[in-house]
Design a protein around this nucleic acid. Structure first.
Lengths: 324, 324
DNA sequence: ATTTGCTCTGAAACGCGTCCCACATTTTAT
DNA sequence: ATAAAATGTGGGACGCGTTTCAGAGCAAAT
């Protein structure tokens, strides 16, 4: 494996000149440039990016941390991030944390160790002070609302999403609305929960504590939720469900039990996943792809020391189908 | 930002000793080790992994290239790969190629440039000679059957999957079976197509050319396929469909048109995606997570110069539901 | 008492580009 | 013609750890 010293000897120029050719620096005589290119070809030279990265002090790599890669929200997010990375010629580290703070810390170190130029938090459970410390070592963008003031956030306006859902259900005449979410400790979860109860009070809706479900992620979970719900004597007439999958599971089980959707139970989901179409689920479309893209372009600006707003929110859209 | 030289001065030892401490080398007197650790703490030292990588000539990073991240098959695959990477303390580059050979080449260069120690091909459209050339620069494992003899493959036994599907349908009395697949040029696509027609002849099944559909990926595609199919005067009694999503779309549309599933049309999918449960779709479960994990562990062995078989196949499983 | 062999440590080379500085040569402007 | 500016090139320090080698100190074995 050859290096620039060998190239420089072969081409009878200095190592600096080789470097200039490699980096398309204008101040190189055409003959010398040719000679260098020739030598590169002959010696089958390939630059060692580790040396380049070390020398330049940056890597053109971004990192993204998510709890689970194969989750409709996050794989969609990663896609958006990946697309934008390709555009900016960045590579992308993807790390799956399983919501484990240790795993998160592990990955944060990549930033410390200068392996990545910037970090995107898909979702993150580490406390604020850890994040603040990490942010001394590099730029961070969060894809959920973050308490930290040092971290820029782009996120979906969950409050408005919840409002959209509740308003829609109220328009259909519902006054008894339950809630089912995923991880109540995540940014999304907290924000949805908080907003839900805000509007629930605001509008004076009916409420029972057993109309609330958390930690529900899959179709199977949805089936269980429906079973529990349908055993109750006083039931909500509608459910706001944080995931289309869970909502689909609920509809599946409810129909199995002969419950009519939406007459006996209305269900509204989130995400507009493909599955929602098949089960005719009304859902709130979230601009996840755009979220990922925006995160990268903000991070890119930050890395290049451009000024960007510290918070950006993206709006949602109601997709009306037959489940409400 | 401090470096080992500063640490060595502070602790009154040589740089070598600092390095030994950092790497847990046994031959360091406890007092010196303590002094070094103390200095590291005081100076807030963080090693620069770019220097380490350059020096060691490896990075502990693997790369995976997939056409699309947010695709049920690939995000599942990436999850398996990511899990196994975490185990081996590897980081993971994820690159989305959109099946574009240029994008692929771009990523192959990471291997050349020594940014990654090994490469996993989720799916890849580049010709064999390109792959062979790249494989001179590092280890590659393919997750689909590869023509290249220099590349190790782990893949799902698609032939046996197709056989499983056809056998099951024949058991139910079907003699007129159609086929619907995704990318016919991909490894999976080619192999499914070939196997299907092999068994179709072998068993002397009925056939019409318009019972074959390719390039179908989404629920919407499935709806279109169903529409086309149901217009035909001579229809197959069953369809083998390469994707649960497409199959779900077909069932959705067929039911809309009053077609009974499975009496008028049986449908069998692939992947056992969550959606298949909701639409009661019989499907062939593929061990995708295991595929990803195996790919990493093979790559790991290759990188550490252990001998591994060049081809490994994983078996599938039929999940019977109500669509057949 | 002497050899053998481990434990411990530092010097220095190495992995490989980048980039600043100094200096030479041209070109352009005055 | 002369100063000023632009172009072109090489030297060498720098980014930062790792690793080989030589050698010192010390204990166990003969």
């Amino acid at each position: 494996m050859s290096n620039i010293t060998e190239i420089s000897k072969r081409a009878n120029v200095s190592r600096s000149t080789v470097s200039r050719v490699l980096n398309n620096h204008p101040y190189v005589k055409p003959e010398k440039r040719e000679a260098v290119l020739q030598a590169i070809k002959e010696l089958n030279y390939v630059p060692n990016l580790n040396a380049v990265n070390l020398s330049r002090g940056k890597t053109n790599v971004l990192g993204v941390i998510v709890p689970k890669i194969n989750h409709p929200f996050f794989s969609n997010l990663i896609e958006g991030i990946g697309e934008e990375c390709n555009k900016h010629n960045y590579s992308l580290f993807v790390h799956q944390s399983n919501n484990d703070p240790k795993q998160e810390l592990e990955f944060f170190n990549r930033l410390k160790y200068k392996l990545i130029d910037g970090l995107i938090l898909g979702s993150c459970v580490s406390p604020c002070h850890i994040l603040d410390e990490v942010s001394d070592f590099g730029k961070i963008v969060s894809c959920e609302a973050s308490e930290s003031k040092q971290i820029t956030s782009v996120f979906i306006n969950h409050k408005s999403g919840i409002q959209m859902a509740i308003d829609h259900l109220r328009d259909q005449g519902h006054q008894a609305i339950g809630l089912c979410i995923g991880n109540p400790k995540s940014g999304v979860g907290m924000s949805r929960k908080k907003s839900f109860f805000y509007y629930q009070k605001e509008y004076g809706l009916q409420w029972r504590d057993n109309w609330y479900f958390a930690e529900q992620y899959t179709i199977e979970d949805g089936i269980t939720v429906a079973k529990t719900l349908l055993e109750q004597t006083v039931r909500p007439t509608a459910m706001v469900v944080g995931s289309d999958y869970v909502a689909a599971g609920m509809i599946y089980e409810a129909k199995n039990q002969g419950i009519r959707i939406p007459e006996d139970l209305a269900v509204i989901g989130f995400d507009n996943q493909p599955i929602s179409k098949v089960v005719e689920l009304t859902t709130i479309h979230q601009p996840i792809l755009e979220l990922g893209q925006t995160a990268v372009s903000i991070l890119y600006s930050l890395i290049n020391n451009k000024v960007v707003p510290t918070i950006k929110t993206l709006e949602l859209e109601l997709i009306k189908r037959k489940s409400t």
